[in-house]
Design a protein around this nucleic acid. Structure first.
Lengths: 199, 199
DNA sequence: ACCGTTTTATATCGGTCGATCAAGAACGGA
DNA sequence: TCCGTTCTTGATCGACCGATATAAAACGGT
């Protein structure tokens, strides 16, 4: 019986996410958001409560669509080593094609240390990503597609670190040869040719 | 013959750097800076011109003291492989002890894409760091302390990526085991035990 | 057709932003 | 001792910040 909304939730959230993604949280004003979402400030506050609440909504949505979904899909339908290779290569090609980088990484640096709520979400998702790498590596070590030279635990830690690093470099020194070379080197670690040595 | 300044340039620049370092560029207001530097806004503008000019000054100073100096010292007086190990281990211990992280990395994400001047400085310094790794690795490969399995170029790229990644994780998921494990794994790549295979 | 509810649109709210102005204070050169 | 220059001080500039108050408009249930 109330008056229905005149805007599409998904569309305005996409627009808001893009703003935060491009410019960060602090540098995006409510008026910027309103303009991008084609929403008057009052409607924005009525629908989402506050700038901060809108941001956490965008971040959650982004992570579900750009991380969880991708990780789940790769882990379910791709051999473990290929899953890791695909994931890293996708990070690189996306980073080179999209100057916005990764909202998770951008927010990790800007907000995580000063915003407990966002910090908790980000820490959880990073741990999730580490788990993805560890499970893939462990599975790959069992089926022989990944070297057992090193511990899956530390290999996963380095893979997570590499992803974070690639995202930073893509924003500050976006040279394809750099990103591709680093990725190639990280993936070379998984190569089961080399058989000696312990970590 | 003019009236001399009443403040110590080095001290106020240290205070300003600390603010930018802690909270980032956008989230640090001129009033915050003034309070930290014990300087009234007009004096700040008289001495440094603008918030942005002050920032670039702080960034340059920071980089000279925390990067160039360290790189030069390590490269001049330490065997190449040890230089890399020391550099990475110092990154980890500093990251764990200092929640501010690295001003270079923080600024790379926040400003590099939207501020051409800062972006240029940061890109140059990142390239410099990559060069440091490449020279150390090449030297280590010549003296046998680093495996020649992989190209120095790609190994250096991965080392640079790892440093960036460690700095991000330190701010968002500061678990010592994670940072130390990733570092250990990255350094294991240099181990000259493993002798086969090409990249 | 009217009512209750929610969403719109307009016009702000007090506060803070980066930056500046005018006036006085502190020095060295003459 | 006085002058010219620079620095310090306190008040304040217009613009923008996040957030709201108010009231008109749009719907479904009855």
């Amino acid at each position: 019986m109330p008056r229905p909304r005149e805007f599409d939730d998904a569309a305005v959230l996409d627009a808001a996410t893009d703003q935060f993604w491009r410019y960060g949280y602090a540098a995006t004003s409510v008026r910027d958001l309103g303009q991008a979402m084609r929403l008057v400030p009052a409607s924005l506050y009525n629908a989402f409560g506050s700038k901060h609440a809108l941001f956490t909504l965008c971040l959650d949505r982004y992570l579900d669509r750009n991380m969880r979904e991708r990780v789940a899909r790769l882990e379910a339908s791709t051999p473990p080593r290929t899953a890791i290779e695909t994931f890293l290569n996708e990070i690189v090609s996306r980073s080179l094609a999209d100057p916005r980088g990764c909202l998770l990484v951008n927010s990790a640096l800007e907000l995580a240390p000063h915003d407990a709520e966002v910090g908790t979400v980000i820490a959880a998702r990073l741990a999730e990503l580490e788990g993805f790498f560890r499970r893939c590596i462990a599975a790959g070590q069992r089926d022989g597609s990944i070297a057992s030279t090193y511990s899956a635990r530390n290999l996963a830690r380095l893979m997570l670190t590499t992803v974070m690093g690639l995202r930073v470099l893509a924003r500050a020194l976006p040279e394809p040869a750099l990103l591709r070379g680093a990725t190639r080197q990280a993936l070379a670690l998984l190569e089961p040719t080399c058989t000696e040595q312990t970590t």
